[in-house]
């Protein structure tokens, strides 16, 4: 028996909108600690890890660990039927092959039940080690989204370089090249507009903008985005989900051709 009541139902809607571009089908794992998802995109270049902690739900009941395979587009379709103010309750019975989304309007005058078929998804769960990153950039998510969008009109890849000066996003394409440098900036009035750079050592990595743009769909979840970079590791683009969890996108860097020949 599973019953998760999320007062801020719009969070779930936003989560779905953020990941459904990247992943079509995924297993949602429910355990005592929370409601989570880990999935790779079909080309195994990017990985999304989402967690909504149990404490963030108004009511969280999960009798035993449950993995529910869902088609994210179908799930998004159903969640779009929920109002932004609605309370969403996710319900599933043990052994059932369906999941029920219940939407309650804030005034409790309307209750909608949507039942969705589950699917068997043979997904690989990857172990993501906790790593120390060489550089961590925290910046306004809207700013990051804008940068990725702008750069993708020029080139296909973005080189993210973190130095003492700041973080530089650069690209080049047929029509020319572009560099955007964001400097550390904590003097703003609003903390959500700050740009923070923690750097152990300079790092410079290349990524496909296509994926970055897809990640920025999660900008609606959080004002700030955290970008963690280390050479030899995938970049982590993390958006906090209210106070109750996170959504993290991992993207493998582009690598030099000759490097991969090395053992």
């Amino acid at each position: 028996m599973l019953e998760l009541r999320l007062v801020q139902g719009s969070l779930l809607k936003k989560v779905l909108e953020a990941i459904r571009d990247l992943v079509n089908e995924a297993n949602f794992d429910c355990s005592g600690t929370g409601f989570s998802l880990q999935a790779m995109d079909s080309s195994h270049v990017a990985l999304v890890a989402m967690l909504l902690r149990a404490e963030g739900f108004e009511h969280y009941r999960c009798d035993r660990n449950l993995s529910m395979g869902m088609n994210l587009n179908n799930m998004a379709k159903m969640l779009r039927c929920a109002g932004n103010e609605d309370i969403i309750t996710i319900k599933a019975d043990d052994g059932s092959d369906t999941v029920t989304f219940m939407f309650e309007s804030p005034k409790q005058d309307k209750i909608a039940d949507f039942e969705m078929k589950l699917m068997d998804i043979d997904s690989e769960h990857l172990g993501i080690p906790d790593s120390e990153y060489q550089a961590i950039v925290r910046m306004p998510s809207a700013e990051f989204m804008r940068i990725c969008k702008d750069l993708s009109s020029i080139g296909d890849t973005v080189v993210i370089s973190v130095t003492k000066e700041g973080v530089k996003f650069s690209t080049s394409g047929e029509i020319g090249s572009a560099n955007i440098v964001c400097r550390q900036n904590q003097t703003v009035d609003k903390p959500e507009e700050a740009t923070l750079i923690e750097m152990q050592e300079p790092v410079s990595l290349t990524f496909a903008l296509r994926y970055m743009n897809s990640f920025t769909k999660a900008s609606t979840l959080s004002d700030q985005v955290t970008i963690s970079l280390s050479s030899e590791l995938p970049v982590v683009v993390e958006y906090k989900i209210a106070e109750m969890g996170y959504i993290r996108f991992y993207l493998a860097p582009k690598i030099e051709e000759d490097e991969e020949m090395k053992p």
Binding site: M40, S43, H44, V45, A46, L47, E124, H125, L126, G127, I128, P129, D130, S131, E132, Y133, Q134, T157, V159, S172, E201, V203, S204, L205, T206, A208, S230, S231, E232, L233, P234, Y250, L251, A252, P253, K254, I255, E256, E257, E259, E260
Partner: peptide
């Protein structure tokens, strides 16, 4: 285990790596 120790900055114009080369299945 972490491989943060290695430092080989990747350059542009390269091949897309795979996430599975960094994280192993559990």
């Amino acid at each position: 285990s972490k491989a943060a120790g290695n430092k080989k900055p990747a350059k542009a114009g390269a091949k897309q790596g795979s996430i599975m080369s960094f994280f192993k299945k559990v």
